[in-house]
Each structure stands twice: as structure tokens, then as C-alpha cells.
Design a protein around this nucleic acid. Structure first.
Lengths: 236, 236
DNA sequence: TCAAAAGTGTTCAAAATACACCCATGT
DNA sequence: ACATGGGTGTATTTTGAACACTTTTGA
């Protein structure tokens, strides 16, 4: 078997979320067609076939890096999609023919997800990603393949998780205000909370710790800044 | 493409749980080697390669039926396992060579799970399942492939789910006592609960409804029987 | 009459919810 | 001075946890 032989039947797709202080966003690529200058105006999640000799987790990390430049992202598996017709829409087939050796092969795909703070990373799209863009989750257009379903599933997964582990610090700056954190929760859960109750609940955890610093240059009472204390968190 | 062509790279495995009024059990098969009379004493989860033209969900249902005779089981996807070495242990390879066209092919597997009341189903093992047996989860031996990992993940999944939706009525007779239900919860969550608090919490849901019947022939005060009211449940 | 499991209430602590006003800053 | 979002406390309800005795039946 040649090194880095491709498995034609299994792919991974990555659903990377970020937060712009108001809304959840997801990372999409604009597909360009292989070596030709053909361009495909349909957006998609970053994803591609796996290699024969890598784990699924590694494949997801590699594919994400190849397409978007994001490195060392902790990805978590969400769900596997295997409808036999999931890549057979005409438009998708046209595009696959331009980049794949076996565009008609049955492909099942394993979806992965992660949360990142987009300010901390540069996007350097390459391979068949002509571009990589952050799109508000609420504005996501019709995507290629079954990627709208995949996004939906990743969102459900995210909502579940935030109840169990208080996530989301990955999405915020190192130092953040409680209002920012609250907006993040509201964006993920698509809900509204009472400010006082939210603050009380967060501070009761003791791993969101106040810094002795305040916002500067805002035209209102400056908010106190907090940070997430990883070691305190892991103690519990 | 021939009808029912096999996809050599993707399989499904089924983790079917039942309950014997004391403990959780899981359904395992004893593998027999293809057309030969060779026998493999290692147990495994029921699973096999998928067909090119079926969904993953359908494949799981079909494979389960082929191997164990269980029909119309509602299966739910759990997780996908894709370590490149997951089927390459010598013993597993020996066995695969006796039943597969490409025993060395990379296979990723999608795990499915379900809960059933074993009293309601007959096991009629066939294909390469020489036998199908219920084994107490706590007594599960070393299984073939990575099936111990898969079982572990399915158990985690089950624990998560029972917090969200009160499951488990599938595992009990139509008419059951609250003590049986409590034992079931204790088995799944590997915990103990206070009887009074448990009963209160269950009855507060209103979809576990009392029948005007009691146990008969028990050498103690007979327990009242209850049933799960599906339509009341779905109203909430 | 005994053994075995069923059934039942109360108290306390913790957590969730609802709700309204003053404060610090920049413009 | 005013507009903006920051910050705070209390009362009520709901939920979860701990805990012990009496009842009914068959053997």
C-alpha cells in the first residue's frame, strides 16, 4: 500500500464554531475545482477523504489544517452520516469530478466539531478551498452535500454539552466580561437569561475568577474583567 | 454495480442491552468461521460490513437481524471507531480470513445501540453467528476487535440518555413495579437511590401510571403494578 | 410468628426564578 | 446633562437529600 493512500469511502467534516461577541459563527470554505480554474459558488464545511493509515481524529485535524490553516484544534466527534445519496446531487457530483479519483464512490462522513476564538487564529485556505470564511450560523446558506444536516447535528451537540460542562471559554478572549459570557450562552442556547441570576450562577462555580481590571474606553460604567481558571476547573 | 455489493471499508456494530431484573446484560455472538467448521471461542458484538446501497441505520438493523434474528429494533447511533489497527490483532485476522473477501481492508465501524426486553424476542442466530447469548455487562470477557471499547462507549451513552429522557421502559415488562424500575435505574447508573425519593420523582412525572393490580404469589406484601403511558409521555 | 419486600411524610438545604434601582463612564 | 450598559439584594418557589416505621402477604 502506498504511503498516504486515500480511503475512497470515508471522509471527515469539521464544524468549527466561533463567536463574534453577538452571534455564533461557523467556518465554511468556498470550493474551487482542483487544478482547473473552475469555481464553485456553493459553500461547504471543510472536509475530505481520510488516509488509510490515520485515525479518524487525526484525519479530521489534518483535513482542517490542509483546507483552512487551522492547527492544533481539539476536535470532538459528533455523528456519522451515511446516506447512500448524500453526495449525489448533480452540483456536488460536478464538483467532485474535478477533484476526486472516484467521484462516484459511496462516501460516509464522520463529523467533528470544535469551538475556537477566531481572533487567535489565521485562516490560510489552500488545497481545494479557494477561501475560508466565518458565517453567522443564522445566515448559513444552502451548503454542499448534506452539510446543513451536519451543522444542525453539531449545534445540537453543542447545546447538550454546554449543560454538562461549562464550555465556551475557548470562544472568548482570555479576559472577558460576564456580559460577554452571558451573550455567548444566549447565542448557543438561543435563549435569554436574567442578568443577576446568571452572574450568581457563574460566580458560584469559582473557576471564573475576577481580575482586578476593568474595561477601558467605553461610554458607560466599565465592566470588570474575568478569566477562566483551568486548574481550578479541573479540580472539580 | 451488483445489487447488494458490499462496501469493504465500513461496518456497523450493535450494542443491544437488556435487563434481567437485577443487572444489565448485553447481547454477544459467538463467531463461527464461514463455511468451515472452524470455531472461534472469542465473543463479539453483532456487526458486519454494510452494503453500498443502504443507509447506516438500515445496515445496522439488517446486520442485527441476520446475526441474531432480532427484528424491528429501534437502533440509535452512538459513535464511530476508526483506528487503523482496530481489526489487525492476529486472532481477529485469522477469523476474518475465514469469512471475508478482503480481510485486511481498513474497516471503520459505526456503533449503534438499543434497549430491549429480552423476554419479548427470540434469538435465532445465523450467518457467522454460531450462537447469540446475553451476558451480564459486569461479566463481559475480552471481546474481538475493539468491541470492549465500543461497549464502554455505548454504556456512557446510555447513562447520558437516562438523565435526559426517562428511558428504560423498553427494558421492562408492560406492567412493572416501582421497585423493578428503581433496580433498572440503579443498574444503568451503577448507583443506589432512596426508595421514597425515587418513587416521588417517578410519580411526579405522571406518565408512569398505576394500574389497579397487584403482584400475586409473592411471599411479602404484593407491590402495585404500573405501566408507562406513551401518549402522556409525548405530551410533555 | 416470622421473614421479606411494600408503602408512606417530614424536615432541611440548595438551587432556580422573579424582580427594580443606582453607578461610572464618555460624549 | 444624558445615554449607555454595569452592577447589586431579597423574597418565593421548587427541587433534592436524608431519614424509620408500619403493612401485607406466603411460608
Amino acid at each position: 500500500m502506498p504511503q498516504h493512500a486515500i480511503n475512497p469511502n470515508v471522509s471527515v467534516d469539521c464544524v468549527i464554531f466561533s463567536f463574534n461577541n453577538q452571534e455564533l459563527e461557523v467556518l465554511l470554505i468556498e470550493r474551487s475545482a482542483g487544478n482547473t480554474d473552475k469555481v464553485d459558488e456553493i459553500k461547504a464545511l471543510p472536509g475530505n477523504l481520510i488516509y488509510e493509515d490515520e485515525t479518524l481524529d487525526c484525519a479530521a485535524e489534518r483535513v482542517l489544517t490542509e483546507l483552512t490553516g487551522l492547527e492544533n484544534i481539539f476536535l470532538e466527534q459528533v455523528y456519522t452520516f451515511g446516506d447512500p445519496d448524500r453526495i449525489s446531487k448533480k452540483h456536488d457530483q460536478d464538483w467532485l469530478r474535478s477533484i476526486r479519483a472516484h467521484p462516484e464512490a459511496r462516501v460516509i462522513t464522520v463529523a467533528y466539531t470544535s469551538l475556537i476564538n477566531k481572533e487567535r487564529f489565521n485562516l490560510t485556505p489552500s488545497s481545494f478551498a479557494r477561501n475560508a470564511v466565518w458565517v453567522k450560523v443564522k445566515d448559513v446558506p444552502q451548503l454542499g452535500f448534506d452539510h446543513n444536516d451536519i451543522l444542525e447535528k453539531a449545534l445540537d451537540h453543542l447545546k447538550q454539552k454546554i449543560y454538562i460542562k461549562p464550555l465556551g471559554y475557548e470562544l472568548l478572549p482570555d479576559r472577558f466580561t460576564l456580559a460577554q459570557l452571558q451573550k455567548l450562552y444566549e447565542a448557543i442556547l438561543d435563549d435569554k437569561f436574567d442578568k443577576r441570576n446568571f452572574r450568581r450562577k457563574i460566580l458560584r462555580t469559582y473557576f471564573i475568577v475576577p481580575l482586578n481590571e476593568k474595561q477601558q474606553g467605553v461610554a458607560h460604567k466599565p465592566a470588570g474583567l474575568y478569566r477562566f481558571d483551568k486548574s481550578l476547573f479541573h479540580q472539580m
